[in-house]
């Protein structure tokens, strides 16, 4: 067996690599990645945004969901180079700029819309997409909207209640789904 052999050759020299330009959570950035990396890997490893989770790497669970150019997508299904030039919002970037929670996040907290929290990225981004379309979703529409996500803790019911509550709060309030960014005085 090999005992901790330190390698002398650059191990991954043969792996195609590139520099990507992305806008992540409003900030432009450049990141070096291997062509074979998945978007979720680049977000988590290079950009250290750990709020995007991995539950299956197979497109089934939704835990890796982010918003890419305004659409909720599963980032384990995207090769990082395919994201070149795109604008990405991760769970870390959902709330208002100064910190805190947006009305949707707030509704999930107040209505117990999660337990362990692992599935939250999928639920939040799926709900965002739904609420951008309608603020009066039926329960069936909410169930359909989160159908790409698996939650093993809640049985989905408190997720539905959370989305309902968020829809109502946003509908009644002056706040938009994504709160206005305060312009510095």
């Amino acid at each position: 067996m090999t005992e901790a052999l330190p390698t002398t050759t650059a191990p991954e020299s043969a792996i195609p690599t590139r520099e990507l330009s992305l806008t992540v959570n409003g900030r432009p950035c450049r990141v070096v990645c291997q062509d074979r990396q998945l978007l979720v890997e680049v977000l988590r490893e290079q950009l250290r945004l750990k709020g995007t989770h991995i539950g299956c790497l197979n497109g089934d669970c939704g835990a890796c969901t982010v918003e890419l150019d305004g659409k909720a997508i599963k980032s384990c299904l995207v090769l990082a180079p395919a994201a070149e030039g795109s604008e990405i919002i991760t769970l870390e970037g959902v709330g208002p700029d100064g910190g805190g929670l947006d009305p949707l996040q707030q509704a999930f907290w107040d209505n117990d819309g999660f337990q362990c929290g692992f599935c939250v990225p999928g639920q939040i981004f799926a709900a965002r997409q739904l609420l951008a379309r309608t603020l009066e979703p039926s329960d069936a529409e909410i169930r359909e909207a989160v159908a790409g996500n698996i939650c093993r803790c809640t049985g989905y019911q408190t997720i539905i209640e959370s989305v309902r509550a968020a829809a109502q709060a946003i509908g009644e309030g002056t706040e938009g789904l994504v709160p206005e960014v305060d312009t510095p005085a």
Partner: peptide, 13 residues
């Protein structure tokens, strides 16, 4: 809850 909802839950990985 706020940590989890903002992606700072810090699970093992």
């Amino acid at each position: 809850g706020d940590l989890i909802l903002t992606g700072h839950g810090a699970y093992l990985d």
